[in-house]
C-alpha cells in the first residue's frame, strides 16, 4: 500500500508538471459496439476504481481523431475496431509500444500481429470473413444456396451481391487482401472482376451489406461472419456461410496512444482487457468474435473457428500502407470502372 502511495504521489508530481493535476482517470476511445464499450468501461471502473471517460466511434473515425490530435493527445487507450487502422496508427507512430505481462495467455495470431507492428498494437478478438444471405429472398428468386467464394461470381447471382467499397471500409479491404492471398494477385483480381459484375452496390460502411440483407434489400452480403451471426440472432432471416475455399480474418485490436496523459492507467486497462475475465464480457452483449485470451469463452452461436479453413493472413504485408495504396489503386483502375 505504501509503495502504491509513493507511486501515486510520484505520478501526481509528474502530472502537475504537465498540467492536468488529476489522478486515476482514463480516457478510452472505443471502436466496438456501443453496449460492449459501455460494459468494458463500467467493469474496468468497478475492478480498479479508475474513472473511465469513454467515447465510442468507428475505427476509421477514431483513427482520424487520434491523428488530428497527435500534437496534443487527448485519449489514452484505443480499444476495439478492426486491426487495419490500428496497424496504420502504429506505422505512423501515433501509438506507443508496450509488452504486456498478460501476453503469454494469448493465442499465437494475436502475438504475431503485435510483433508485426513493433508491439504497438495487440489483438483482442478475431473474426473470420464470410458472407450471409437472406433466406426469404433466396427462395423468392429461386436461387441455389451459395457455399463458396467462387459461387458468388456465377451469373445467376447477378445483382444480388453486396459488399462494401474497399476504399472506404476496412472490411472490404480485408476481402480484397484475402482474395490476393487465396488466389494469388492475378487470380484474386480476376475474382474481384467476376464479383464486380454481380454486385448491386458497394456500400460505404463495412457491415452495411449484411444489414441490408437482413432487411431484405439485398440477397447476399459479404461481411465478417460475426456480424452476420448477429443479424441471425437478432431475428432477421439470415444464414451465415463460411466459404469452402478458406477465408481471411480480421484482428480486432487495442493500442495505447503515444503521449497518453494517463499512461499508468492506460497500461492497467491494457493488461486488464487482455485477461480472460474481461474478454468473457463479450458474451453478455452478443459479440460473436473469438477472444484472443486462450482462457476466455466463446459464444455458442459464434462461428466455430476450428471448422473454418483460415488462411495464414499476412498482416505485415497487407497492413502496410504501401501495399494498401497499390492494391486499392489497382482495384480502382481495373475493377471498379468495368461495366456491371
Amino acid at each position: 500500500m505504501k509503495s502504491f502511495k509513493i507511486m501515486l504521489s510520484a505520478s501526481l508530481v509528474a502530472m502537475t508538471t504537465i498540467g492536468a493535476a488529476q489522478a486515476d482517470k482514463l480516457t478510452l476511445y472505443c471502436s466496438a459496439q456501443e453496449d460492449w464499450c459501455q460494459l468494458m468501461a463500467n467493469n474496468f471502473q468497478d475492478a480498479t476504481g479508475i474513472k473511465v471517460a469513454m467515447t465510442r466511434k468507428s475505427s476509421g473515425e477514431t483513427f482520424a481523431q487520434i491523428k488530428a490530435e497527435s500534437s496534443n493527445p487527448k485519449g489514452d487507450v484505443w480499444w476495439g475496431g478492426t486491426g487495419d487502422p490500428h496497424l496504420q496508427a502504429a506505422e505512423e507512430g501515433l501509438t506507443a509500444s508496450y509488452v504486456s505481462p498478460m501476453r503469454d495467455q494469448l493465442h499465437p495470431w494475436a502475438i504475431s500481429q503485435a510483433e508485426s507492428a513493433d508491439n504497438k498494437t495487440i489483438g483482442i478478438y478475431s473474426g473470420a470473413l464470410g458472407y450471409g444471405y437472406n433466406t426469404d429472398l433466396l427462395a423468392a428468386n429461386n436461387l441455389p444456396a451459395p457455399s463458396s467464394w467462387a459461387d458468388l461470381t456465377k451469373p445467376e447471382y447477378k445483382g444480388h451481391v453486396q459488399m462494401a467499397n474497399p476504399n472506404s471500409s476496412g472490411t472490404a479491404y480485408t476481402t480484397l487482401a484475402t482474395m490476393m492471398q487465396l488466389f494469388g494477385e492475378d487470380g484474386g483480381f480476376d475474382f474481384m472482376k467476376g464479383l464486380h459484375s454481380n454486385i448491386n452496390q458497394y456500400t460505404k460502411s463495412g457491415s452495411a451489406p449484411i444489414k441490408a440483407a437482413g432487411r431484405g434489400e439485398t440477397t447476399i452480403g459479404i461481411v465478417f461472419m460475426h456480424d452476420a451471426v448477429k443479424q441471425a440472432v437478432n431475428g432477421f432471416p439470415v444464414k451465415v456461410v463460411a466459404p469452402a475455399e478458406g477465408t481471411g480474418y480480421e484482428i480486432g485490436s487495442m493500442s495505447i496512444i503515444d503521449g497518453a496523459r494517463n499512461m499508468k492507467e492506460a497500461k492497467a486497462f491494457y493488461d486488464w482487457a487482455l485477461s480472460a475475465d474481461a474478454q468473457n464480457l463479450a458474451l453478455e452483449v452478443n459479440a460473436f468474435q473469438v477472444p484472443s485470451n486462450t482462457g476466455a469463452k466463446t459464444s455458442a452461436s459464434a462461428p466455430d473457428m476450428s471448422t473454418i479453413k483460415l488462411i495464414d493472413y499476412d498482416f505485415k504485408t497487407y497492413g502496410s500502407s504501401a501495399t494498401r495504396k497499390r492494391l486499392l489503386k489497382k482495384w480502382d483502375d481495373e475493377v471498379s470502372v468495368l461495366a456491371q
Binding site: 468507428s58 476509421g60 473515425e61 483513427f63 482520424a64 491523428k67 487495419d84 487502422p85 496504420q88 467499397n165 474497399p166 476504399n167 472506404s168 471500409s169 476496412g170 472490404a172 479491404y173 460505404k204 500502407s321 494498401r324 495504396k325 486499392l328
Partner: peptide
C-alpha cells in the same frame, strides 16, 4: 460529402 467523409475515415486515410 460522403467521399470527403470516407477519404478521412475510410481505408485510404487521405486527408
Amino acid at each position: 460529402s460522403t467521399e470527403i467523409f470516407f477519404a478521412i475515415v475510410g481505408a485510404q486515410y487521405d486527408q
